[in-house]
């Protein structure tokens, strides 16, 4: 069974890098880091059986909160996963659903951000959440 981790985020916007950091730290699973989530992801997960997407969220929850979303059951809450610029992961997943190209299993981890100002260091609580999620993926 092919598992795949895709981390999304902007490495220059502090906590927004959470998804990228998870992808960088996982040891036992093939992983990819992407600054934007565009429709190209649909090709990237082609052939994978179990896809894990990790992205930063901005929903108003406390920073470092980790949530699991199951797109096969329902669409992602678009607002929490919005992108300032490009096509967001919620839209990419809906496009894949229309084209019947969602993987057999897919889970989206949302890591709530605190500080997304310009910079390359994450808040300690988000850093902790990143380590927790990476471990959870490696241990699964």
């Amino acid at each position: 069974m092919k598992r795949l981790v895709i981390g999304l985020g902007n490495p220059y916007r502090r906590d927004d890098a959470a998804g990228l950091e998870v992808a960088r730290r996982v040891r036992t699973v093939e992983s990819h880091q992407r600054m934007t989530s565009s429709y190209e992801l649909i090709d990237l997960w082609e052939g994978a059986d179990d896809v894990i997407i990790v992205d930063a969220t901005r929903s108003g929850a406390p920073a470092g909160t980790v949530r699991h979303f199951h797109p096969l059951k329902e669409p992602l809450p678009n607002r929490a996963f919005s992108s300032t610029h490009a096509i967001g992961i919620a839209e990419t997943i809906e496009m894949a659903r229309q084209l019947e190209r969602l993987p057999p299993q897919i889970v989206v981890y949302g890591i709530e951000t605190g500080d997304i100002t310009a910079g390359t260091t994450m808040s300690p609580v988000v850093e902790e959440a990143v380590m927790r999620v990476a471990k959870e993926i490696d241990d699964a």
Partner: peptide, 20 residues
């Protein structure tokens, strides 16, 4: 394009592949 993909899946797939 997501709404369009329901009714025109072959064209949208073609667009994705062209982009690629």
């Amino acid at each position: 394009a997501i709404d369009m993909a329901k009714d025109f899946p072959e064209q949208v797939q073609m667009g994705l592949r062209l982009k690629k």
